[in-house]
Design a protein around this nucleic acid. Sequence first.
DNA 1: AATCATTTCCAAAGCGCTTTGAATTTTTAC
DNA 2: GTAAAAATTCAAAGCGCTTTGGAAATGATT
Lengths: 360, 360
Amino acid sequence: MNLRQLSEKLGLSQTTVSRALNGYPEVKEETRRKVIEAAARYNYHPDTRAQSLATGRAKAIGHVIPHSTKHEMVNVVFADFIAGAGETYAANGYELIMSMVSDEDEAKAYRTLAQKRSVDGVIVHGPTLNDPRIALLQEIGLPFVVHGRSSEVPHEYSWLDVNNTRALERATEFLIDLGHRRIALINGLESMDFALRRRRGYLNALETAGIAADPKLMSSAEMTEPYGYTMAQKMLDGQNPPTAFIASSIVIAMGVRRAIEERGLTLGKDISIICFDDAISYFPNGDGEPIFTATRSSVREAGRRAAEILLDQINDPTRKSRHELWEAELVVGRSTGPAPTTTPAQSPPQAAAGAPAPRT
Amino acid sequence: MNLRQLSEKLGLSQTTVSRALNGYPEVKEETRRKVIEAAARYNYHPDTRAQSLATGRAKAIGHVIPHSTKHEMVNVVFADFIAGAGETYAANGYELIMSMVSDEDEAKAYRTLAQKRSVDGVIVHGPTLNDPRIALLQEIGLPFVVHGRSSEVPHEYSWLDVNNTRALERATEFLIDLGHRRIALINGLESMDFALRRRRGYLNALETAGIAADPKLMSSAEMTEPYGYTMAQKMLDGQNPPTAFIASSIVIAMGVRRAIEERGLTLGKDISIICFDDAISYFPNGDGEPIFTATRSSVREAGRRAAEILLDQINDPTRKSRHELWEAELVVGRSTGPAPTTTPAQSPPQAAAGAPAPRT
DNA sequence: AATCATTTCCAAAGCGCTTTGAATTTTTAC
DNA sequence: GTAAAAATTCAAAGCGCTTTGGAAATGATT
């Protein structure tokens, strides 16, 4: 059933049927009612391709996912982000087109996508420091929104990010307030902008507290469970081990916990962990009570919102670029506690100012 | 730059340029060379929509992801599967269209997708027992491949599945051979076909060994870490606790381990775990040596292959439906060991026949 | 050199929709 | 009752591509 057939069935011209369906005012209400009713009865939906061709709008958003050929990693948070964005698209009649592309082909992929006109805009995932994709997309003239930010990019562009620096400052301060002085950071890949900002937040807080940063307590790599485990193992077994860990993701935190418990140490007593929790749907941080004390920000919600911003921008290209900086929430679980007192320390406050009190 | 402009630039007709680009024989080799070279220089790529409209083929595959409104879960393995499928699509010039849809709208989503003609076929994810989507898609006439299978469906259809029953038989036998008699199964949602089959395998092996199944040692729910933790906790603290757990996913297994270690028990000595490992990229089962003894099958590889089957089917609709049943590999890690001997038992064999010997 | 077969190229139709500009019908104003 | 205005409807063009049917150019055969 296509438009012609439908219009013949109704004894109307294609023009009128099209207008009735698309809500144009110049069609009698009764006619419109009949048309809509018939369309529903015959399950008529306009052919997307024909519609796009005629309107010049693809009604689709692209997500280019680079998959490194070296390590077969997919961006950890990508599934939930996409799920959120997908909800927005569905609600607005847009389709979501995903391109898997090996990372060296990424620039070409954007060019091709634009030239094939299969999308009206794209979401940029996982920005790095001074990410070249931003200049590229601006040159091409393809609307985009960045999930995250890219430091040192000279242009204006729209982004939605969580305040990674502040989140890690708070996490670090929280541990410092609990009396910890040897605090390790198991970070994500520091070619990623978010990881750089997290490290900065961590270093800021240490500096403010007058604690010297120890390179031996900082690491950076792809965020997997075994990575967390291996790093924690190494640090715990080294001399002058940390009393607390900050993990850049909940997956890393699980690995750190494994190393801790394997050593017969008690989490939240001998060693503390605090992590950045992206609130990934199948990795909930506990049912009710959080397993890990964490700075939390829903990546799914970010997906929903980033998609909205992009659609707004597509619908009104004159609009200035928009920025949204979300503060992560600090949730206190059972993975943190006062630093073990080898030398009797001043009684540390139990929670950071403004944070909810721990349940224990 | 569109076809008309390119052909003008070359002083050729659109027909010839189109044919040259699409590899038709009736064009001089030298002409073809010139055309291809010009296309590359001007970064010309045919407009997808126009191309689809003209050919009647969307050159796109749909993945409909139902997201329950109750629990905001995205299929756990979906990201890696999609990544694999996406590679196949990219290699064959297909696009991947994802639809997030609330599960009650799923049937309508398929109808709409077909009517809008935006895809040439779909992959069906997470089939349940007698999944209604299969009959629906057959009625609509939209080509599809199921990732997994649906028991009790009367029709023929293409699928790619891992032998879940056999995998769990082997896992269970492995534990039985190690002397375990109290073996718990922490399964996924048993409305899912794969979970049913896994339970069947588990029960088969118990029955063969003459061990009575204990409902208290079997559970079924959405596969999350806290679920594994909670169930293991309950079972370990109950009377007559299990000496071994079978987890239906590595995420569950992590929760089980947490409960075990929290109780000061040693994994692989006091309690064993074996899990089904989908080889998810950011959840590698250890670097080198596996953390968990597991039955393993790469879901990413499954994605690649399922996509191939679907594309074959689209390219040749007369082709009969295809089935591929993959055997999971049994990898032995450190999470399993002989059952603790409360009553001195006969020395159990260390590994199942045919399985690689454990490293320890 | 004329004829036929082959190779190479092209004009135009068509895919299913939107949208422009015009035609038709209905309503309003006098 | 008629002219002007407003409300409806429509025919046709166009979006950028593929493909059919045919024309032009080239090569082979006599």
